[in-house]
C-alpha cells in the first residue's frame, strides 16, 4: 500500500504539471501550428535559403565554387535578355491581375448583392472549373485559340474573317487570357468576402443622403471593398510572375517569361547560381511591385471621398 502510494505520488504530480503546461494558451497555439510550421520551415524557408546561398556562388562546370560573388546579380540586372524577360513578366502579371480583378469584381458583386439564397450555389459553381487539372485548362485554351481552334472556326463561320488568324495563340495576349481565366476564382473569393462584410445599412444611408446607385458604389461599396481587391491582386500577381507552364504552352516566342529563363538555367543551362540570382531578383522586384500596387490602390481609395 505504502509503496504504491509513494510510487503514484510523483506520477500524478508530473501529470498535473504537464496538463497545466498544455492548458496555457500560448503552448496550445504553438502545438496547433507546429506541424504546419515545421512543414513550412523544411519545405519553404530552407529551400529559399539554399537558393539565396547559391546566388552568391559560381558554377564551375560540374562543381560549385563557394566563394562569395555578386557576378550573378550583375548578369541578372545588366544582361538585356533577362531585363527584357523580367520586364515582360511583370507586365504580363500586372495585366493579368488587372483583368482578373476587373472581371472578378462584377461576379463577386452580383453574388454578394443579388445572390439571394443561392450564394452558396453560385460560389460552388465558380469552383467547378478547378475540378480539372490546371494543365488541362491551359490545353483547352490551346484548343480554343489555335489555328483550327474554336474561336477561329467560329469567326470564319460567321464570315468575319476569311482565313484562320494566327494572332490568337502563341503570344503575350494568349498568356494573359489563359492566366486571367485560371486565376479568376482566386480573385472572386476575397472580393466576395469583403463585399459581404459591408453593412447594408451603410448603402441605405448613402442612398438616404442623396446618392444614386453609381455614386454610392463609388463612394461606399468600392472603397470598403478595397481590402478584397488588394488581396485579390496579391493572390494573382505574385504567382503569375513566376508561372512557366502557361507561357511554355500558349506563349510561343513572344510569351516567354522570366520563369522559363530560370528553369533553363537550372536545367539545360546548368548554371544554378545564375538561376538562383534571377529567382532572388524576381522575388525582390515582385515584392516591390506588389507593395507599390497596394499603396497606389489604398491612396486612390482615400481620394475617392
Amino acid at each position: 500500500m505504502t509503496a504504491a502510494a509513494e510510487g503514484s505520488q510523483p506520477l500524478s504530480l508530473g501529470r498535473r504539471q504537464r496538463t497545466s503546461l498544455l492548458q496555457s494558451e500560448a503552448a496550445q497555439g504553438f502545438a496547433l501550428i507546429s506541424p504546419t510550421f515545421i512543414y513550412a520551415l523544411v519545405l519553404l524557408v530552407v529551400p529559399i535559403l539554399v537558393v539565396v546561398a547559391h546566388s552568391f556562388w559560381t558554377q564551375n562546370y560540374l562543381t560549385i565554387d563557394r566563394t562569395f560573388t555578386l557576378e550573378n546579380y550583375r548578369i541578372a540586372v545588366t544582361e538585356p535578355i533577362y531585363l527584357d524577360l523580367l520586364r515582360r513578366s511583370l507586365w504580363i502579371s500586372l495585366l493579368v491581375s488587372f483583368f482578373t480583378v476587373v472581371l472578378a469584381y462584377p461576379i463577386a458583386f452580383y453574388i454578394s448583392f443579388h445572390g439571394g439564397r443561392h450564394k452558396g450555389l453560385w460560389l460552388f459553381l465558380i469552383t467547378i472549373p478547378f475540378w480539372t487539372s490546371y494543365l488541362l485548362r491551359v490545353m483547352s485554351w490551346k484548343v480554343i485559340l489555335g489555328y483550327n481552334g474554336v474561336l477561329n472556326s467560329g469567326l470564319m463561320g460567321l464570315g468575319i474573317i476569311s482565313e484562320p488568324s494566327t494572332a490568337l495563340l502563341y503570344n503575350t495576349s494568349a498568356v494573359v487570357i489563359t492566366l486571367t481565366h485560371a486565376w479568376a476564382a482566386f480573385a472572386i473569393l476575397p472580393i466576395f468576402v469583403s463585399l459581404e462584410k459591408i453593412d447594408r445599412s451603410l448603402i441605405e444611408a448613402a442612398t438616404d443622403l442623396g446618392d444614386g446607385p453609381l455614386r454610392r458604389f463609388l463612394r461606399i461599396t468600392l472603397p470598403l471593398s478595397v481590402p478584397g481587391i488588394v488581396s485579390a491582386i496579391l493572390i494573382v500577381m505574385i504567382p503569375t510572375v513566376g508561372d512557366f507552364v502557361t507561357p511554355k504552352l500558349v506563349g510561343g516566342k513572344d510569351g516567354v517569361m522570366i520563369a522559363n529563363a530560370i528553369q533553363a538555367q537550372f536545367g539545360k543551362g546548368a548554371n544554378w547560381p545564375l538561376g538562383a540570382a534571377l529567382s532572388v531578383t524576381t522575388m525582390l522586384v515582385v515584392t516591390a511591385m506588389a507593395a507599390s500596387t497596394v499603396l497606389i490602390i489604398r491612396s486612390a481609395a482615400r481620394m475617392a471621398r
Binding site: 453593412d199 445599412s201 451603410l202 441605405e204 444611408a205 448613402a206 442612398t207 438616404d208 443622403l209 442623396g210 446618392d211 444614386g212 461606399i220 472603397p223 470598403l224 481609395a301 471621398r305
Partner: peptide, 21 residues
C-alpha cells in the same frame, strides 16, 4: 420617387456611420 430624392433623412438603428470617413 426613389429614396435618394425624397425630402426625408434617416437616423439608422445601427447609426450606419461610414467607417472609412
Amino acid at each position: 420617387i426613389p429614396a435618394n430624392r425624397r425630402p426625408t433623412n434617416m437616423v439608422f438603428q445601427s447609426y450606419a456611420i461610414f467607417p472609412h470617413l
